[in-house]
Simulated assay, not measured.
Amino acid sequence: MSEPVMILDQADTLARIDRWLLEDVQTGDVTTEAILAADARVAARWVAKSDGVVAGLAEARAVFARLDPALDWQPEVSDGDTVVAGDELVLFEGAGQAVLTGERTALNIAQRMSGIATATRAYVEAIADHPARILDTRKTAPGLRDLDKKAVATGGGVNHRAGLYDLAMIKDNHIVAAGGIAAAVAAVRAHAPYVGIEVETTNLEEVDEALAAGVDMIMLDNMAPETMRAAVAQVAGRAKLEASGNVGFANIAEIAATGVDFISIGALTHSVIAFDISQRIDRI
């Protein structure tokens, strides 16, 4: 686990921004090109319209800079900062057509990332009295996993596996296919001895099986808090424990109090509530 989980090279980043812009612009921004001269310059700013945690400013700047490499970008806050409605986030000036054409794409990225960071921070603060850490999952938007996970880290969460390649997660269907937890663990070790192994469990008997197999991490899936507490005592630090399933603000403190090491929340990235940001032009 790392914070953040992936770093893209420059060429890949630019290619992806080009795809984002192509999706929106296609043959041209007919409204902006009709209204603004090609040499017009504008000054603009981003203003928070809600309270939360900022994330994605660098990615937003990269979108605008792809359209105007000479863009003057002056952030008033940094990723990870908490802001309230009405706060200015960034002041910038550049080619008018670039500022308007790139507006929605840049906002979409920053609003999504800020929404994820805001939700993550709220969960982190909800269990601040306990040592458990908030984990993300692979329930991310296709093509945006690195940004979703970066936003989780910005909000104070911990990135779990990046994908299927950097941690073996043996889940219920794998266990059925292999014929049991021990067989599944043995198969993974034979195939990829260099990766860590986590096993999904649903009861204390399966926790015992995973522990006997010597795995690195055990997922306690949809267990009641009293069962999680028993699992913590049973494992006694011999493997890391992740609580998963039906986690929300109503029960997260109770889950954290059981003594688990991590609590994973898919909703951080699969049910994002975008953070509201407004782009305002000050002068032309």
Rank of each mutant, 00 (worst) to 15 (best):
E3K: 13
M6N: 10
M6G: 09
M6S: 13
L8W: 15
L8Q: 13
Q10T: 14
A11N: 14
A11E: 14
D12L: 14
D12M: 13
T13P: 00
T13G: 09
L14N: 13
I17P: 01
L21W: 11
V25G: 07
I35Q: 10
I35Y: 12
L36G: 03
A38D: 15
D39T: 15
D39A: 15
A40H: 13
R41P: 08
V42I: 14
V42Q: 12
A48M: 08
A55G: 02
A55P: 00
L57T: 05
A58Y: 04
A60H: 02
R61Q: 15
R61I: 04
F64M: 08
A65I: 11
D68P: 08
P69V: 11
P69L: 12
A70E: 14
G80Y: 07
D81S: 09
A85G: 11
D87Y: 04
D87N: 13
E88M: 12
V90N: 02
F92H: 03
G96M: 06
V99S: 02
G102L: 09
E103I: 11
N108D: 14
I109C: 04
A110G: 08
A110E: 02
Q111M: 14
Q111K: 12
M113P: 03
S114T: 03
A117H: 05
T118Y: 03
R121H: 09
Y123M: 08
E125K: 11
P131G: 11
P131H: 11
R133M: 14
I134P: 06
L135K: 03
L135V: 09
R138A: 09
T140W: 05
L144M: 14
D146S: 14
K149T: 10
K150D: 09
A151V: 08
A151E: 03
T154G: 02
T154Y: 02
G156A: 07
G157Q: 00
N159L: 10
H160Q: 09
R161E: 01
A162H: 12
A162N: 13
L164M: 13
Y165H: 13
A168H: 00
M169W: 06
I170C: 03
I170Y: 01
K171W: 05
K171V: 08
D172W: 07
N173R: 12
N173F: 11
H174Q: 10
I175Y: 06
I175M: 04
A177I: 11
A178M: 09
G179Y: 04
G179V: 05
G180N: 10
I181R: 00
A182E: 11
A187S: 12
V188I: 07
G196T: 10
E200P: 03
E200K: 02
T202E: 15
E205H: 13
E206I: 02
A210E: 03
A210F: 06
G214R: 05
M217G: 01
M217E: 02
I218E: 00
I218K: 02
D221Y: 06
P225S: 10
V232S: 05
A233T: 14
Q234E: 07
V235Q: 07
A236G: 10
G237E: 03
G237R: 05
R238S: 08
E242W: 00
S244M: 00
S244R: 01
G245W: 06
G245A: 06
V247A: 03
F249L: 15
A250M: 10
I255S: 01
I255C: 05
A256M: 02
D261R: 01
D261W: 04
D261Y: 02
S264W: 03
V272Y: 00
I277R: 01
Q279M: 15
R280P: 01
I281D: 11
I281K: 10
